[in-house]
Design a protein around this nucleic acid. Sequence first.
DNA 1: CTGTTAGCGCTTTCAA
DNA 2: TTGAAAGCGCTAACAG
Lengths: 329, 329
Amino acid sequence: MTLLDVARVAGVSPSTVSRILNGTAKVSADKRKAVETAIAEMHFEPNQLAQSLKSGKSMTIGIVVQDISSPFFAETLRGVDDGLKATGYASVIVSGHWNAQEEADRIKLLLARKVDGLILLSGHIADQDVLRFAKQRPIVATGRALSSDSAIGFKLDNEYGAMLAVRHLIELGHRRIAFVAGPSDNPDADERLAGYRRALLEADIEFDPKLVAESDLHEASGLLAINRLIESQQQFSAVFAVNDQSAYGVRLSLYRKGIRVPDDISLIAFDDLPTSLYTTPPLTTIRQPLYDMGLAASSALLGLISGTAVDIMLPALELVVRETTRRFR
Amino acid sequence: MTLLDVARVAGVSPSTVSRILNGTAKVSADKRKAVETAIAEMHFEPNQLAQSLKSGKSMTIGIVVQDISSPFFAETLRGVDDGLKATGYASVIVSGHWNAQEEADRIKLLLARKVDGLILLSGHIADQDVLRFAKQRPIVATGRALSSDSAIGFKLDNEYGAMLAVRHLIELGHRRIAFVAGPSDNPDADERLAGYRRALLEADIEFDPKLVAESDLHEASGLLAINRLIESQQQFSAVFAVNDQSAYGVRLSLYRKGIRVPDDISLIAFDDLPTSLYTTPPLTTIRQPLYDMGLAASSALLGLISGTAVDIMLPALELVVRETTRRFR
DNA sequence: CTGTTAGCGCTTTCAA
DNA sequence: TTGAAAGCGCTAACAG
């Protein structure tokens, strides 16, 4: 059933039906009536595909995440979803799986589907490639600094955030602070390591590589990392985990070993996932405005698409003190 | 830049280009060569929208979830994503927010976009409405039993799962078992209540409504629910929470009150979210094959689309004994 | 093997 | 105010 059928039933031309559907021009009351009843009776819904082909606007935006089931991306997606609500845009979400090649492929797929814009959440694809794709459609990226007339990127100051975390520990009297790091090819994780080192430096605490163990940002490898640290016989009274998820693994390992948190060891992390409010005890962490980033990304993209400048105000990283850290005795 | 441009550059007709692109017919080696170099040099990518309009297949499937940021749906989405991988299908994900009207609206939106099929994850929309939409495009739904030639639904036996949970508690010697229920308009939650009652009945334990408190399936309300139970001075040695998320809230409340799990109170839940492996202590729960449900949904839908019957084999619900339950002393 | 041609369903000049 | 007609980019008869 097409617009043409409606036109036939209503006894008008297809252009008239189109005009009524889109409010593009004035139409006499009787024809409007005829068309509207025809539409209602036939349960006609215009074919979006045809509209898009004609107009060049698909009213869909493409989102590339790295892991569709990660709570980290989930929060941001919710922000994007809310930002797109009632704009008529729908979003097609694909996963890049932290792989530059796959990200590029997925972007090409989205571009072939003529999405009106792209949101790239983290990822390993090179900035220059992003910029190249941005020539076809506007792109907003998180976790990277980008700025052209068709691409916007915003990243938070991870180094600063990490400093916030470590300073908190130092203020509580901790001196031997272990760091469960992230993979070295992850810029965010790298910056957090830098922040850890800088905070130590400013407190005149020597950086000890033996106090650092790498994880892949997930629970299981956080657990393994802390185990390695413990087995290496290093002494430490506090742990800074590169992100909340690895901290969950740390927490479990300590629990298994009968090491109390925060009584025996303080634990702080980075992200503030929704779940962190409900760990036992609730996790002290650096709050990352995940939801707001999604909201900001969508409004920035909408701005890029419509050609109106929007300035993005993102809440800064902040320390959220809950119950996994305490004064060193 | 269109296929026509490519044809011009390569000195052939558009049909020839199309044939090469789709491998629809034999083309002489020299023309093929010419076209392929032209495509490569121009970086031509066919417009998917035009292809779709022509073919009637959009190569996209629509997914309606209820909460885009819920870990519950995230796992299933990952299954769907994996199931669609390398099929050429992309998915547009929208959220129904547990609202029948909104779900219907979103389905209409997806239908207008000519998705080739729909996956409906839970939801409040009536079965008959689903069936009606299924006349336009095949639908696979989870959490409801459906069966027509264009719609498949599969649900797990929540009542049985709940019985598994409560029997476990009873076998451990618990008799006073509290239940943190879900909203009564949620069929899954309702069935779990029924299972709870049935398990009590079969063990000759009288059902006591004072031992039941309702939650909305989220952490915060799980916490509130258990607080109400505790304040009501009811005695109980074990808690069955309607889902993992509410159990997290219960766990935190007990922690705050200095009630040890499982030493003072046993706790069991339902879902087995990935995080439940890392709570302290790890949560005993009923495992729901979330990921497999996503996988099954995608393959069932692909079958419906292609007209080939696929039979869905889903792992059954199972008890996963971890560390939040222990023998009543 | 290859080109011509007629649409897919809709929008939008252009005339009337 | 309304309709005729052209065309968005691609595919698939149908000839040749």
